[in-house]
Design a protein around this nucleic acid. Sequence first.
DNA 1: TGTACATCAGTGAACGCGCGTTCACTGATGTAC
DNA 2: TGTACATCAGTGAACGCGCGTTCACTGATGTAC
Lengths: 194, 194
Amino acid sequence: MTKKKPHHHGNLRAALLEAGLELLHDGGLENLSMRKLASKAGVSHAAPAHHFANQTALHSGLMTEGYKMFTVAMQSEIKLAPNDPREIILAAGRGYLTFTQENEGLFNLMFGGTPRDHDDAELNKASEEAYNVLREICVPIVKGEGGSEANELMIWSLIHGLARLVLHSKRDTINAEKSFETWRLILPPLEFAT
Amino acid sequence: MTKKKPHHHGNLRAALLEAGLELLHDGGLENLSMRKLASKAGVSHAAPAHHFANQTALHSGLMTEGYKMFTVAMQSEIKLAPNDPREIILAAGRGYLTFTQENEGLFNLMFGGTPRDHDDAELNKASEEAYNVLREICVPIVKGEGGSEANELMIWSLIHGLARLVLHSKRDTINAEKSFETWRLILPPLEFAT
DNA sequence: TGTACATCAGTGAACGCGCGTTCACTGATGTAC
DNA sequence: TGTACATCAGTGAACGCGCGTTCACTGATGTAC
């Protein structure tokens, strides 16, 4: 006896987000629409309205997933790194680069100017958690004139900029290994508190 | 006697690009369409087809304008800077930041993953010229393990990343002055050849 | 200088498409007693 | 345990919209002689 489609999906919200990530993965930002999303999740195109009030809400939901993936990507690289502040920073950057290369569409959604819901608590929480990873790896760096904030911004700008540029010129830096090496080369000397 | 509209516009291509920049300026990436463009330029919506084969061609044309503006923005700040390699790098960064803050929509078009025509000679030329400005200001930096390319990538990643992050968190860094100061703070110490 | 003619750069109507959103509906689920 | 009922989460049809693109056309411009 084959399973009948249940009228209630069970966890449609999660399924829709997953479908959205797939769409982004397969065809980038241009490939994302509420109707395709619903279709990919095997549901009528009016169904998502029960879970996302509008497109911006959906985008915010996907960005939330993005930040969570960001956090995980950085943390799992950090876990493998030797216990040395510079190595930890390099590892976090590798996680960042891996994420961006594997999720170009999502990265563009997150940082390409797409409107988001600034009051989305989950989104704000997820993005803060990602930032916290960055903050922690910067703690050991000796503070200069700009304090710890300048250190964090420096590291973040560097790695974010590199990630963007790597995607932008795929011909030159097509594989992860090469971009990891570049990252190692451009990270300036840092002074750490002992 | 009032001037009749001439049937031939004279320089519609330029007018369309200008209209496109205005649309981007006023409403960002989402505000850009061929029909709005034509309407803004005071021309029927089928007219642009004579100047841009398709949307990608139009986007590429706008990106070309963007790179030119980039180059000008950096060069004009460099011109005002004291003749000191670090000051020149700081000045170029200020130009970059000014451009991005005044042209957020265009910046998103250029670096947000929008497809471009990779065979557009004008576009490639304009982007190379912008890169050349960067290359020149990096010449005085002492080469490390990664050679001059690593120096260029380091400076570019830093300033591009900062520009992106400034736009991303407008609340914190709403004005140019503040972002200039941040830029000065995060530019690491550099060693210059004498 | 004048004329014939090819080419160019517009117009305006029409095409079909995919989109987000709304709506009345219905079947499934959960709850009170 | 059984029943009545409210709520929830889907369906499918329909809405109007703006879009990129195509097309036959026409008026303006440029050129050959």
